[in-house]
């Protein structure tokens, strides 16, 4: 064995990554060669010096991280008391349905809970689709979507970071591309979310896409994203869950354009289950357009517009 090849093997030898045969021949060389043997000593010294800088996370930090995580998942405040037995799904349904009492106050924590909830349970409902993609190299779980752009002819180009940076492209009918666009709708970068939801809005027939649009309308911080989600949900305005999210937007979205569109979609068809929500709204609504629309709809349903 030459010194050059011995030096190349020393780090691997140190980490026990050589085959027994190569280990034997390296050891024989080290035994004979003083300078390579010194190189081996330096390797060990380097490792010892590096060992000394190793950090162990303080137990308090571990506990804090756990509390933060569970709070984010359960929708409570960090360090606060955990809801005793309510599952996420129950919390999510409560957030969407019922009387909407206290929704304004709870908006942020519930947003976090529902966002996670949809991802978790939405995926459960559509698990078979995810399985179909398991063999594909693109896995949204460990992929960060950097940017999304359309390249014409229905093709999309998506820049992603996973273990390395790359660009993937394909049609939206490709399940792997669709998964990435769905992942894009949950990215931190609002520009990526707008682009993703815009691409998804024509495909609300898929359960997974519908969930992503509902999630975006209910909880996205960016009005442009919520607007695009609302457009995508237009075709599904008859669906009970979609109507609940539309009602939620009508009550608490701070963007008037979104609320005006939501009311149009909601009152376009008679729905007696909305009477309570609409009656409550007509009492407190500041926006003339919304109030008149709601009052008209209530009148058509022969429901009282006044207080009761």
């Amino acid at each position: 064995m030459t010194c050059e090849s011995a030096l190349a093997l020393i780090p691997l030898y140190h980490y026990g990554e050589l085959t027994p045969e190569r280990e034997d021949s390296l050891e024989a060389h080290l035994h004979e060669c003083g300078s390579c043997s010194q190189a081996m000593d330096r390797q060990r010294a380097l490792a010892r010096a590096l060992d000394r800088r190793e950090l162990q996370p303080p137990s308090l930090l571990v506990e804090d991280c756990r509390a933060d995580l569970m709070a984010a998942i359960q929708g409570g405040a960090a360090g606060g008391a955990r809801p005793p037995s309510k599952g996420l799904w129950t919390l999510f349904l409560e957030a969407l349905g019922g009387t909407f009492a206290g929704m304004g106050r709870m908006r942020q924590p519930l947003a976090a809970a529902a966002l996670v909830g949809l991802g978790f349970f939405g995926a459960r409902l559509t698990g078979t689709k995810a399985a179909a993609n398991a063999g594909n190299a693109v896995q949204p779980a460990y992929t960060t979507v950097r940017s999304i752009s359309t390249t014409g002819a229905g093709r999309v180009e998506i820049a992603v970071d996973d273990t390395s940076r790359r660009v993937v492209s394909g049609g939206l009918d490709d399940p792997a591309i669709q998964q990435l666009v769905l992942a894009g709708s949950r990215e931190d970068n609002p520009a990526v979310r707008v682009e993703s939801v815009d691409l998804l809005k024509g495909r609300a027939a898929s359960g997974e896409v519908r969930d992503a649009l509902l999630n975006a309308l209910a909880h996205d911080a960016n009005p442009a994203v919520r607007m695009k989600a609302l457009e995508g949900l237009k075709a599904l305005a008859g669906d009970a869950q979609v109507r609940q999210v539309l009602a939620q937007a009508l009550i608490k979205d701070d963007n008037d354009v979104i609320r005006m569109q939501a009311v149009d979609l909601l009152v376009a068809q008679r729905d007696d289950s909305m009477v309570g929500v609409l009656q409550n709204l007509v009492q407190h609504e500041d926006n003339n357009y919304v109030r008149l629309k709601v009052a008209k709809a209530l009148k058509e349903m022969n429901a009282s517009v006044g207080t009761f």
């Binding site: 991802g119 978790f120 995926a123």
Partner: peptide, 9 residues
């Protein structure tokens, strides 16, 4: 959180 959201896959 990513694990939580993607555990189904």
């Amino acid at each position: 959180l990513r694990v939580y959201r993607n555990l189904q896959t």
